[in-house]
Design a protein around this nucleic acid. Structure first.
Length: 291
DNA sequence: AGCCAGGGTCTGC
DNA sequence: GCAGACCATGGC
């Protein structure tokens, strides 16, 4: 079902129903939990052992258990109000990915990458958690990023009734010393985490302003933080603030761009740059570009 | 053992 | 503007 919002952009509306303490979203054809939750945009999701159709993670201060089967997404332990205020946007369920796939398939390489990664959705995560996570990501590998973040949450987050810990707020981290952060084993990134927390908690960097600031100004604001360059800033803007015009270029993307696209993103991808970036990243890593 | 990991900073040209 | 050393840590 499609309707129009006040910007005259097509809005994709899926039927969501509440059954008991679950919310069920039906008719979701272009969706895949494994590639969405384990493609290096978020670091706190885990598949049920032996079952890639059920995942558990903590976001927005809540433990969420999701499953996807037969074009139906089930969100456990929530209600329609929370779905509409948090999870619909988090899983980017208001966007028509079939249409995106159709549009980018004008380019044959993107068609292949899009088909390969079909179902991968962009996640709209929380700004501070995303910024902090991608500061930790620099010159690092995904398993170790997950470990550092896990220790960060356990040490400074709030325990949840059902297990696990929330991602600690910037204020909590800002009150720490470098020695407090030592157990995280974040290496040289510890001082960057502290500077980010201090600037965010102190209001020097206003993350909520970044939703609407012109892109270059938003980027400049983030780059004031020590340890934040263009790539980390773009990741925070894309994954934490939904700025899909960002196209973060890490080592994999640089390799893929040179090898697959002769350095230039095809025009048909431009309206969805950040989303397509995620397709290319996942495609490049999974195939190791041995084509 | 040595290289690499969703980079950034600092120095020196 | 651009190259190169360096930054901590852990997996392979």
């Amino acid at each position: 079902m499609q309707t129009l919002n006040n910007n005259s952009q097509a809005v994709y509306t899926l039927q969501a129903l509440q059954t008991g303490s679950h919310v069920v979203v039906k008719g979701l054809s272009c969706f895949d939990l494994a590639s969405t939750l384990d493609c290096g945009q978020a670091f706190r999701w885990q598949a049920e052992p032996g079952d890639e159709s059920v995942w558990e993670g903590i976001a927005h201060g809540r433990l969420m258990r999701v499953s996807y089967f037969n074009n139906t997404l089930t969100l456990h332990g929530t209600d329609l109000v929370e779905y509409e205020t948090v999870w619909r946007d988090y899983f980017d369920l208001g966007r028509d990915y079939e249409q995106i796939l159709k549009d980018i398939s004008k380019d044959p390489v993107l068609a292949a990458a899009g088909e390969f990664t079909k179902g991968l959705h962009l996640l709209l995560q929380e700004p501070w958690e995303t910024l902090c996570s991608f500061i930790i990501s620099q010159n690092n590998n995904i398993p170790r990023i997950k470990g550092i973040i896990s220790r960060l949450c356990e040490a400074f987050g709030q325990p949840l009734d059902c297990g696990g810990y929330t991602f600690p707020g910037a204020r909590v981290i800002a009150a720490c010393t470098l020695e407090d952060l030592a157990p995280l084993r974040a290496g040289f990134r510890g001082k960057y985490i502290l500077d980010a927390a201090q600037k965010v908690a102190g209001g020097e960097v206003d993350l909520n302003a970044l939703y609407v600031l012109p892109l270059d100004e938003a980027r400049e604001s983030l780059i004031r933080i020590k340890g934040v360059g263009k790539k980390v800033a773009d990741c925070a803007l894309l994954f934490g603030l939904g700025r899909i015009e960002c196209f973060p270029e890490d080592v994999w993307i640089k390799r893929a761009m040179a090898q697959l696209f002769d350095g230039k993103l095809p025009d048909c991808a431009m309206p969805y740059a950040g989303i397509v970036q995620q397709f290319i990243f996942h495609y490049a890593r999974m195939t190791k570009l041995n084509i």
